[in-house]
Amino acid sequence: MKWIPITAIICIVIAVSVAAAAGINAPIGVDTAKEKAQDFLNAPDATVQYQKTERLNQGEYYVFGIGGGQVYVNAHTGAVERATFDSARKDSHEIRLDQAAAEAAARAYAEEKYSGFAEKSMRLIESNLVSHGDAGSEYLYIWREEKNGVLTPNTVVVNVNPGTGEIVSYIGIRREIKCPLEPALSRDEALKVAAGEFPGIRVTGATADLSVEYTRPDAQTLTWVVTMKGEPEGDVLQGGLVVIDARAGEVLMVSPYL
């Protein structure tokens, strides 16, 4: 009869383990997410209004309005992965910050808000002053993590108001890489596949980057992201964007230029 308490204990242990495992992936709930948003804003009393829950390929988000802006909190990790500050767009017509000062502001913000920014191999892949016409301008900084020559989904984007130095928007995604990083398709093979999607164009330039993308919900895929530009025909630019599964060789997206 000794086996009865032993079996019961084993059952309890299994049940607790399963519950704990499930808890890892359970949504944190709106109230906890709201606190995370307030922490991110360094304003525990900030008015944060729940708007919606949004499900995207790379994750599920609780979206909060912050009175002239939004904060996206990852529903499972609690990390704030996006924030926009509409009021920070004011006075962005006059360029008072030079490129170096703007980059320093963007980098400082990234280091403060993105856990592990300094330790990761984050490469600055784009830094531009972008004009939006009468709506002003913004400095745009994009970092992507690079591993073995592959761009991962770990990315930080910071937009800075060139007039005031205020942060206009932030995106910071941090994920564990779960897919193999060795392509079966070479760069040349990827370019050949992409060229096949735009038959007859006279190619004037092409780029190809290995990139881990969330092509389906919660599923990472190693891809070749190819841009192919051709000479215009009929007064229209030829070519476009092609995404290829770098291991299976399957074309996942063909998106011609408008």
């Binding site: 996006r82 709506a135 984007v157 928007s169 993308e213």
Partner: peptide, 17 residues
């Protein structure tokens, strides 16, 4: 202006990034 700017960020994290 806000919609145009936020819509661009909506697109940033859709694949391909």
């Amino acid at each position: 202006a806000s919609a145009a700017s936020n819509a661009k960020d909506d697109c940033y994290w859709h694949w391909p990034i």
